[in-house]
Design a protein around this nucleic acid. Sequence first.
DNA 1: TCAAAAGTGTTCCAGTTACACCCATGA
DNA 2: TCATGGGTGTAACTGGAACACTTTTGA
Lengths: 236, 236
Amino acid sequence: MHSKAPEENINKSIKKIDSYFKSALSVDCVIFGYDKENEELLLLTLKSDIPPYKGLHCLVGDLVQINENIDDAATRVLRERTGIDNVFLHQVRAFGDVDRHPVGRVVTVAYYALVQPASIKLNTDQPPHPTWKSLENLQSKPMAFDHKEILHESLLHIQNHILDIPVESMLPSHFTLSELQSLYEAILQKPLDKRNFRKKVLKLNLIRETSRVQKNVTHRPAKLYTFNREGKESVL
Amino acid sequence: MHSKAPEENINKSIKKIDSYFKSALSVDCVIFGYDKENEELLLLTLKSDIPPYKGLHCLVGDLVQINENIDDAATRVLRERTGIDNVFLHQVRAFGDVDRHPVGRVVTVAYYALVQPASIKLNTDQPPHPTWKSLENLQSKPMAFDHKEILHESLLHIQNHILDIPVESMLPSHFTLSELQSLYEAILQKPLDKRNFRKKVLKLNLIRETSRVQKNVTHRPAKLYTFNREGKESVL
DNA sequence: TCAAAAGTGTTCCAGTTACACCCATGA
DNA sequence: TCATGGGTGTAACTGGAACACTTTTGA
């Protein structure tokens, strides 16, 4: 007979958990924004105040509370630290190297979201002072903790799932095909063929033409399009 | 001036971590095996001894130690609880619902591996008595914790990454094309066309013909093939 | 009339699908 | 000679890639 009385097992489990209770769990949000004017991706960053990373850029993260789901924690942390709400956060994976955090054992779960910086009011005036940074500029700079690796994996993730991610949340409700193409090019970091791109997105039924056109441009005004799956949640 | 003295921040962080220290981290290994004779996938299971799940099948999991990477933890837990060593574990994602574990807050990180049951000596005689179960039979039965969801997500993951996962670890070094096809069919849970399958795997250079043939069969003996990327690590 | 970006089709190639018969062996 | 699974090729279709000129507008 191998099994034991249930109470004994519970006590054993609790004791074991107690003894393992020297680690913490955090979430880190990789928030990508799209800057239409400069046709580049932005990353929402904070300034780390934890040595030895004090002053370096870091992702929007914090500890998970005892009584909240990790998905909910990501939503809360993003709201509390930046003011951003109502965005879709999708898990990338857990990062759990022993020495990834100087204060102690902190395993983190990474989430990404795609947003439109122009439509978001950040709490820039209060700590931790969230700011948008050009993704390209960030590449040449160090980041706090293992956040560079997390950023890199997250970017690879959205590149590999380009057709499943909710890119619609990175653009206003109406946009031109050129704007959409530039967004895809910014994410994939490679140029796309104009005619093939248009054929493809229309074939896929991602978007549909509206009756509106561009205004106040010094060239032939483009038709405005809108997403068919407006409001549809991330598939991935 | 918003920034504070470093020591103050460290202390604040430590205090905060302490107060959050009521959760634990675990790893769960989803170990898929392939049964050549019955042409079906197997799952390595333990019997849970934690109420209210006592007696139900569960994945191979345990708590992560304070000083080990989560990837290392998965390797250790698999070895300690089943005797399996030298397999490639790949992370699926973290599962962190508040009530997923009856003993307390336990966030888990799931890993999968693909193995060949016939080549593995399990510690079946000692607790926790790992045993292989038919994946199909398991579907109709409940499992402990949220392990059914973890299993389901892991299966979807390997199906979606079929060309990147190390299927070679599910077959002996030499195998027939029909055996390989049956394995793919078992993973994808759909039939494949024989001629198209052969063209494809040969074109992709996954495998190469050897000079050996099947022995002791009551029909035309099949040529034996071997993987080109023998020993190559999981890409994904 | 010029500058700027919008808009539009075709051809080629590669990869995927569907599909049926003969072959080699042991019983 | 029969039963069993092994082994093979072609035609049709689909999706991706390459590629250049005309159109519309405001300045």
